[in-house]
Structure formats: C-alpha cells, structure tokens
C-alpha cells in the first residue's frame, strides 16, 4: 500500500515543535502552557478524555484555529500566539503549512458534490497547479493503492464510512504532505469498518510518515505510535514512549484515565492493575466492549450532527 507515497524530509530533525501554547475559546482556557515535540518520522498518539482539547491542539498545528500565546514550529514555519504577534501568519505561510500538512477528520468531510476521484484531485489542481489529467491520474493511483480502484467514479454518499475515510486519507496524501494529522479517524465508524482504516494508517506509518494521531484506539496507539501524549484537564499530563505510558503510567491523572478506558473496554479485566499489558492478556474484545464503543460512537455522531 502507498508504494508511491514519497515522504519528504526537511532539513531540521524536528517536524513539529509546540512551545508553551495556550488556547482559549472566549474567556475559557482550553489548555495552557502545552509543549510537545514531534521528530521527523515519529508517530505521536494523542489520547485523553473527551473535551480535553486534543482536536483543538492538532488544529492549532495547521492553523485551523488560532492560539493565544506560545509558538508552534511546523515543518520550519513559525506560528506565534495572537497575543504575541502583531500580525497573523501570512497567506503564503498558511498555504505552505497546509499544503505540507495533511488532515483527516473524524467525520470524513468529503465533498459530496464531487466524485471520489475529483475529491482527491481537487487540491493538487487548485493549490499545486497540477494539470487536471495528471492530478486525476495520480488520484487513481492513490485510490488503487488503498484498494478503492472500483470506487473512483462513485459519489461519497454511496460509500461506506470506512471507504469514505480511506478516500479522505487519499485526498490528504494527494498533496504529498510531510506531516499527517489524524483527528479520531475511526470514531465515527461502525466497529467492523475500523480495521480497514487503521490498516491504511499503519501502511503510512510503515512508509515513515510523520504523524500526530488523536485516537481512542489504545491498542492501535500502543502498536504504531512511538510516543503517547495524554491530555487531560487542560494540560499534557504525561508524555513518553507508547508502551511505557500505556502499560505503566506514572501520573495519577493518566492512571485514572487509562483505568476508566480499559474498564469500559473489558469490565471483567483485573481492575486493580488496569494496564495495557493486562488488557492484551485478556485480548479478545468482549461483547460489552463492542457495545460500549458502539454507544460511544453513536453519541459522538449525534453531537457531530448537532453542530
């Protein structure tokens, strides 16, 4: 998969450097003084309870939302807080950042009025100036590599959720990004469709793509991420190697979050030592786990629709 995806590298070893960033919505502080580094080729999984600000943090990285103070270096571009910089980032810089950064959303956000191939080819034509034929050809290749060759001319509404999300991944990859941001890419999917999307993400990881991945799939995070950052109560409460953080959390806040997640996943598991290791021993997802995730997904979806 993705044999033709080129992973660019920039001179610096650090792809994303978030330095004491504070983000508010109106008067409310969503998170304060958050710092996080992502090296080239590193996969950082961002986990934490709902409403912790995980989405907001990765949206600061590609400037979908401004932040108040601190700074973020993205692929060599410097972004500053609105309190510190007199003027916002220039159009050229925003364009560079967004061109070099791909984003995949929880709710797919495919363009419903375009066929699958046009969804993927749109931005290369408009932003990179690729010719229409070439962009469509590249889009077809990408879609083939992700197993959607038979869906290129379909419209998004005719696709399953898993297919839509894989198209969304292709759409982001068509810009040949050096950094991918995933915001809960599988949370809106039926459980049986999660695997195909995770498979596509794993293939990208294998190609050496730098990633920030917000997810509730702890097993997957443990598997593919180099680093796990836990966000809670407006701060990053724990950052470290994936297995270390998930199997042996150090802070109380992280412990309680993980125990709640794992408890929800497997109520029968040993609750006194709610570590990922124990979870893996238990392995096969229980009925309750599937149900819990299903209700969670439906609630999320309802919220999404409400907005």
């Amino acid at each position: 998969m993705f044999s033709d995806v080129m992973v660019n590298s920039t001179p610096s070893d650090i792809a994303v450097d978030i330095r004491s960033v504070t983000k508010k919505f109106g008067e409310r502080t969503i998170f304060g003084d958050v710092s996080l580094q992502v090296r080239q080729g590193e996969v950082v999984a961002l986990i934490g309870p709902s409403g912790a600000g995980k989405s907001t943090l990765i949206r600061c990285v590609n400037c979908l939302t401004p932040f108040e103070s601190g700074s973020i270096m993205v692929l060599g571009h410097e972004l500053h807080g609105t309190n510190e910089a007199k003027r916002g980032p220039s159009r050229e810089m925003l364009k560079s950042i967004r061109t070099e950064t791909g984003m995949v959303f929880q709710s797919f956000n495919l363009f419903p009025h375009m066929s699958v191939v046009d969804n993927v080819a749109l931005a290369p034509v408009l932003v990179l100036g690729t010719s229409r034929e070439e962009a469509r050809e590249q889009a077809r290749e990408l879609l083939c590599s992700i197993g959607l060759s038979h869906r290129v001319d379909a419209y998004p509404r005719h696709l399953s959720g898993g297919e839509q999300q894989r198209v969304a991944i292709c759409r982001a990859l068509a810009m040949k990004p050096s950094l991918m941001l995933f915001d809960e890419p599988t949370s809106a999917l039926d459980p049986e469709l999660v695997g195909e999307v995770l498979g596509a993400i794993r293939a990208l990881v294998d190609r050496g793509m730098t990633m920030m991945l917000v997810t509730h799939e702890m097993m997957f995070a443990r598997d593919v991420a180099d680093t796990v950052a836990v966000m809670a109560d407006g701060a990053l409460v724990e950052i470290g190697p994936a297995r270390q953080v998930l199997d042996d959390p150090q802070t109380d806040r992280c412990k309680s979050f993980l125990s709640r997640v794992l408890q929800q996943k497997a109520p029968s598991a040993n609750t006194s030592a709610p570590s990922m290791g124990a979870q893996i021993a238990a392995d096969a997802p229980t009925q309750e786990h599937e149900q819990a995730r299903d209700t969670d997904r439906k609630r999320k979806h309802a919220e999404e629709v409400e907005r």
Partner: peptide, 10 residues
Amino acid sequence: QLEASTALGL
C-alpha cells in the same frame, strides 16, 4: 466542508 478545503490549502 470549509475546514476540509482550508486544511487542503485552498
């Protein structure tokens, strides 16, 4: 929709 197109660099 606007978010997705903005994130693509449009």
